[in-house]
Nucleic acid binder design. Structure first.
Lengths: 352, 352
DNA sequence: TACCTTTACTTTAACGTTAAAATAACAATC
DNA sequence: GATTGTTATTTTAACGTTAAAGTAAAGGTA
């Protein structure tokens, strides 16, 4: 087991000092290096197969306050669903594979690496931000936490994805207009004569995606003068199984429902399957609309009418924002909004 | 912007030296600390809200050769599909969200963080292993690379998932018996009277999953005395779109096919959809069997008959292995095999 | 010629931590 | 009473890097 090749080895191979090597390798603009020396250093580094030690870099660069560079970006994916639902896995929803993949690609191209972390319930994720000296953080669907004050004091660029009502003077945001999405889906059903519209969703947390979609649902009902019936609102967790569970409950009193708006496609598909088990047909007996437009929305049978959010675009924007925010600490704290689009497929029938 | 709270701050608060703090916090078994001092240190650390700097830890621990601890595990997900197929995203297959999620959970519980990285084509991922001083690496479906020799010399515990024919004296492995899976799927079709069985897959790389499944396909054909027809073999990339593309090609000469074995569910579902577009019914006109048993296999219509591999289990095993291998460098280099199971659903019809 | 500037480096110290060696106090053994 | 051992701690140096200060030579200006 050989010792790591360090900058000193490169330096002595090239016949210069360690700093010179550092300056060459980092293309430090504050220092002039002759072309001839630069060449010698570069070829020595190549010959020795030198790879910089990032831990040392991180530490070394922390001398100037606030200038620490770990070249590490964290993405925090909270455990949003209660454990008693059996949701031990943090992000098994296929939404995440597309989202993460889009982020990872951009991040890597910009020379960063990506740390993916769930959250330990009750434990703060600040710790990872601090201990790893993360250059930036992307947080998914979670309001930062109780001690936001403290978090700010670290001054780490932070992009909140799908988080509402958070302070736009500190955080960057990437959102979809979920309230509008909820409204569009519900209006679409109302326009086709549906009034008994059930709403199936995950946890209704303040500032959460689901609450916004719920607000949109209420908006549309209001607009059409339909009174909201709490017996038609099912709030559990995001997932196929809960959709099926909700369908079973609805099946007991199916006359109370002519259409269902599920706030995620995976839940909607669960609803569809749950109904099928009771011999209830979508869309002949009950209409159904989802949210997200994951790949399976067009694959399932019948293909799901849904509100599309461009997940890949969402990932790209989040990554782009965090990269820009890291390199320009003065970057105005924007909130980017990803457009929504209603995709008509085959799960909604007009009652006319 | 305040300076980071360091171990020295804790030390002076507790009235001891920095090393003492380090010893207490790491519960270093080689050093005895009085209960009273331990208490003082711990409470000082709590009061100051101290979080250790991992970069410094990594660097500091690298004094003893081979003992560097970054508490970082890398997972490398290679770009397996050619860019011209439009596969810019590395791991948008929903397989990965379950797999990653299972790994992340285990890793975090053991006190590690997870770096997720794709690969830059042509560029070695050794660099990330070295520059980040990764404690362990999980590599997905890829033979380490040309300069395996060099990689070994770093002596980093490495688990290869879905990689065959690699040296078991150095690497740990987590595999499914893909050849057997390919055999089981094909035999199931043959037993039901099918002979014209198409095979739809991704890239057929040596030591790759797809090649093994192909071997199993060949095994079964041989056993039943059926001659392999290369015109029934479609090798493109793993994904819905390629499945549909293959279906279009098959539709041109549909009499040449009575059943299809697709080596991943997502591809199988693409085949199903492609056929549907041509008015070809699964299973009435053509039977279909997939591989993986992703969530959507049971959700799609008709539900897909497939070979199940327990993806979550696979992730858990890989994570468990890497954690054990890090803490015990002498751990025998095992290859764990995840059991396969044929799940009968509704996409295969008997020709009888 | 004396002074300033620029170019091209080198030297030094620091980042936060830990391993190893050193020390000091005390107890046990001969 | 000297030696050895144990316990509890401190001191020192090192990990690999970089920022900042320092130096030396060459070139330009008054």
């Amino acid at each position: 087991m050989k010792r790591q090749v360090s900058i000193k080895d490169v330096a002595s191979e090239a016949g210069v000092s360690a700093s010179t090597v550092s300056y060459v390798l980092n293309e430090n603009p504050n220092v002039t290096i002759s072309a001839e020396t630069r060449e010698r250093v570069l070829s020595a580094a190549r010959d020795l197969n030198y790879v910089p030690n990032q831990a040392a870099r991180t530490l070394g660069s922390s001398r100037v306050m606030g200038m620490t560079e770990s070249k590490l970006i964290g993405i925090v994916i909270p455990q949003t669903e209660p454990e008693h639902y059996g949701a031990r896995l943090m992000f098994s929803n296929p939404f995440y594979s597309t989202f993460l993949s889009a982020i990872e690609l951009q991040i890597r191209r910009a020379g960063y690496h990506l740390i993916v972390s769930g959250t330990n319930p009750g434990q703060s994720y600040f710790e990872i931000v601090r201990s790893r000296a993360l250059d930036g953080v992307i947080i998914l669907g979670m309001y930062p936490s109780d001690d936001e004050e403290e978090y700010r004091s670290f001054n780490v660029p932070t992009v909140l994805v799908d988080c509402y009502g958070c302070d736009g003077r500190f955080f960057y945001g990437v959102n979809t207009d979920d309230r509008k999405g909820g409204y569009l889906a519900t209006r679409y059903l109302l326009e086709r004569g549906h009034q008994k519209i059930a709403f199936v969703t995950g946890q209704l947390k303040e500032h959460g995606v689901n609450s916004l979609r719920y607000r949109g649902y209420c908006d549309a009902l209001d607009e059409f003068g339909v009174v909201l019936d709490p017996a038609r609102v099912f709030s559990g967790y995001v997932g196929f199984d809960y959709g099926a569970e909700a369908a079973h409950k609805m099946a007991e009193n199916i006359n109370n429902v002519t259409a269902v708006f599920a706030t995620s496609d995976i839940t909607a598909i669960g609803v569809m399957n749950g109904f099928r088990a009771h011999g209830i047909s979508v869309p002949d007996d009950v209409s159904l609309i989802g949210f997200d437009d994951i790949e399976y929305a067009k694959i399932c049978y019948p293909p799901l009418t849904t509100i599309r959010q461009n997940i890949e675009e969402k990932g790209r924007r989040a990554a782009g924002l965090i990269i820009d925010a890291i390199s320009d600490r003065q970057l105005p704290r924007v909130k980017e909004v990803i457009e929504l689009e209603l995709i008509e497929r085959a799960t909604v029938r007009s009652l006319a």
